[in-house]
Simulated scan of single mutants.
Amino acid sequence: MNPLGALKITVKRGIDLIVCDTFSSDPYVVITMGRQKLKTRVIKKNCNPEWNDVLTLSVVDPNLPIKLTVFDKDTFTEDDRMGEAVIDIEPYLECLQLGLQDLPIGTAVKKVQPNDHNCLADESKVIWTGKGKMVQEMVLKLQKVERGKIQIQLEWLDLPGGGGLLSS
């Protein structure tokens, strides 16, 4: 099956992540969608890491869940889980399919509120960046852990010769 496009996920930073080792953690993020698995680099001894790593998923089925998991890198034992979140791309894809043109750059096309179906910590906005492009900034509240958030940004990339999200 041909990919519909690619989803560029910029993993910006972690906020108030839990301490897994004696005083700190060595966090990294793993993003999975179907069989794809992408990783950020490890940031040593930091519970508020700044990654700004760009990970790109090939999207064949936009209904597949995208899972983000934070781990603490350990040298001699299995890496510790520091929480997880599901990235809900449905509101973002809905905005892309509106076929908007020529909005002022920086216009909020949609505001998404935190609810039981997403892991948002705060309101998330889909922002028009011009030339048919939009990004969505989001802060995800990590699940199955006492605290911690991850800030990410989504951007859709059409692939040359790809099926295209908008043509379906």
Rank of each mutant, 00 (worst) to 15 (best):
Met1Phe: 12
Asn2Cys: 15
Asn2Asp: 15
Leu4Thr: 14
Gly5Lys: 07
Leu7Cys: 04
Lys8Ile: 12
Thr10Pro: 02
Thr10Glu: 02
Thr10Cys: 11
Val11Met: 00
Val11Pro: 00
Lys12Gln: 11
Arg13Thr: 08
Gly14Glu: 04
Gly14His: 02
Ile15Val: 12
Asp16Met: 07
Leu17Glu: 00
Val19Phe: 07
Cys20Leu: 14
Thr22Tyr: 08
Thr22Trp: 11
Ser25Phe: 06
Ser25Ala: 13
Ser25Asn: 02
Pro27Lys: 06
Tyr28His: 00
Tyr28Ser: 00
Val29Trp: 00
Val30Pro: 05
Ile31Val: 04
Ile31Phe: 00
Thr32Lys: 04
Leu38Ile: 05
Lys39Phe: 10
Val42Tyr: 01
Ile43Leu: 04
Ile43Arg: 06
Ile43Val: 13
Lys44Glu: 10
Lys44Cys: 09
Lys44Gly: 10
Lys44Met: 13
Lys45Leu: 04
Asn46Phe: 01
Cys47Met: 13
Cys47Leu: 11
Cys47Ser: 09
Cys47Thr: 13
Asn48Ser: 12
Pro49Gly: 04
Glu50Phe: 06
Glu50Val: 03
Trp51Gln: 02
Asn52Leu: 13
Asp53Val: 05
Asp53Ser: 05
Leu55Phe: 02
Thr56Met: 08
Leu57Val: 02
Val59Gly: 05
Val59Phe: 07
Val60Asp: 15
Asp61Ala: 05
Asn63Ser: 13
Leu64Cys: 11
Pro65Tyr: 01
Lys67Gln: 08
Leu68Lys: 01
Val70Glu: 00
Phe71Ser: 02
Lys73Trp: 06
Lys73Met: 09
Lys73Ala: 09
Thr75His: 15
Thr75Lys: 13
Thr77Glu: 09
Glu78Thr: 12
Glu78Ile: 15
Asp80Gly: 14
Gly83Ala: 04
Glu84Gln: 08
Glu90Asn: 14
Pro91Gly: 05
Pro91Lys: 11
Pro91Ile: 03
Leu93Asp: 12
Gln97Ala: 15
Gln97Leu: 15
Gly99Met: 00
Gly99Leu: 02
Gly99His: 02
Gln101Gly: 07
Gln101Lys: 14
Pro104Leu: 07
Ile105Asp: 06
Ile105Asn: 07
Gly106Trp: 05
Lys110Met: 05
Lys110Asn: 11
Lys111Phe: 07
Gln113Ala: 14
Pro114Met: 06
Asn118Leu: 03
Cys119Asp: 07
Ala121Tyr: 03
Asp122Met: 14
Glu123Leu: 10
Val126Thr: 07
Gly132His: 05
Val135Gly: 11
Gln136Asp: 11
Gln136Phe: 09
Glu137Tyr: 11
Met138Phe: 02
Met138Val: 07
Val139Phe: 06
Leu142Gln: 06
Leu142Val: 03
Gln143Gly: 05
Val145His: 03
Glu146Gly: 13
Gly148Val: 03
Gly148Asp: 02
Gln151Trp: 08
Ile152Gln: 00
Gly161Trp: 01
Gly161Ile: 03
Gly161Phe: 01
Gly162Gln: 10
Gly164Lys: 13
Leu165Asp: 04
Leu166Tyr: 09
Ser167Leu: 15
Ser168Ala: 15
Ser168Lys: 13
